[in-house]
């Protein structure tokens, strides 16, 4: 078909967590510009299987930018070149024929590689478990309209809550900091009356768990915001710092 592209891929291959990894080069031929990046990877994998080779392992699921499963560090950028887009929603029309594309997993000591482009993000789980909730049991809650919440706060809480937990912020940060991820959750609850009762304990516990997981510090380069596919704002980090300070001072 006319307009189709031929690309060279340099892909990180690593058999397992403890194995030595290395880049391998593959040719991706006759790629339609309407394909998504992951569909291009599907094509490459089909060719590898047919050739009796091991296909490239990569995480993906919803393929519509919301589950947060897909990752990939493409040409030195988390989720590739576009702003506000996950790898699964990146289309090949963003590349040109003849180009060489480098594809790596998220690189962070808190996200060990499991295989090829698949990393272990369970550190994020443990941070959420440390305090990312409101302690209410099922049942015996007030009517949903019993507590009015200003539209402004509700909308802002939503924007923070829109984080998909993909880990791009960590991958993009030179310090592998998870501040954007953690602060998004802290902010969501700090902005809502439902989260108010536990706000001090929450921020202290979540930050402490974040530190234990080996994520780095924030040095305000804001790469996280720039690369976040859901455009979570760094103002969340400022809010978390205020919450943290307040909790420390008044605890």
């Amino acid at each position: 078909m006319s307009g189709n592209m031929n690309l060279t891929l340099k892909v990180w291959r690593q058999k397992s967590q403890n194995a030595q990894g290395a880049f391998e080069t593959y040719e991706a031929k006759n790629i339609s510009p309407d394909m998504s990046f992951l569909e291009m990877m599907d094509v490459v994998n089909e060719d590898l299987i047919k050739a009796g080779k091991e296909p490239i392992a990569f995480d993906h699921d919803c393929r519509e930018g919301i589950c947060g499963m897909c990752s990939m560090y493409i040409n030195g950028r988390a989720h590739g070149p576009l702003k506000g887009v996950t790898t699964c929603q990146l289309h090949m029309r963003s590349f040109s024929s003849g180009e060489t594309i480098t594809i790596e997993p998220w690189r962070a000591s808190a996200f060990p590689v499991l295989r090829d482009l698949v990393v272990d993000r369970t550190a994020f789980e443990r941070i959420q478990q440390a305090g990312g909730y409101v302690s209410v049991n099922t049942g015996s809650v007030p009517d949903a309209n019993a507590i009015p919440i200003s539209k402004e706060n509700a909308d802002e809480a939503f924007l923070s809550a829109a984080c998909i937990g993909c880990g791009a912020c960590v991958a993009a940060c030179k310090n592998s900091s998870a501040m954007l991820f953690v602060s998004a959750k802290v902010s969501q609850y700090a902005l809502l009356p439902q989260g108010n009762v536990e706000r001090k304990e929450r921020v202290l516990k979540m930050v402490s768990q974040m530190d234990q997981e080996g994520f780095g510090n924030c040095s305000n380069t804001e790469a996280c915001e720039a690369e976040c596919p859901k455009e979570i704002k760094v103002t969340n980090i400022a809010r978390m710092n205020r919450e943290f300070l307040r909790a420390k001072l008044f605890s």
């Binding site: 209410v136 049942g139 007030p142 939503f158 989260g195």
Partner: peptide, 12 residues
């Protein structure tokens, strides 16, 4: 009711 109590940010 349950979801609001959990801090689900519904449209308002």
């Amino acid at each position: 009711d349950q979801c609001v109590a959990q801090g689900v940010p519904f449209a308002r």
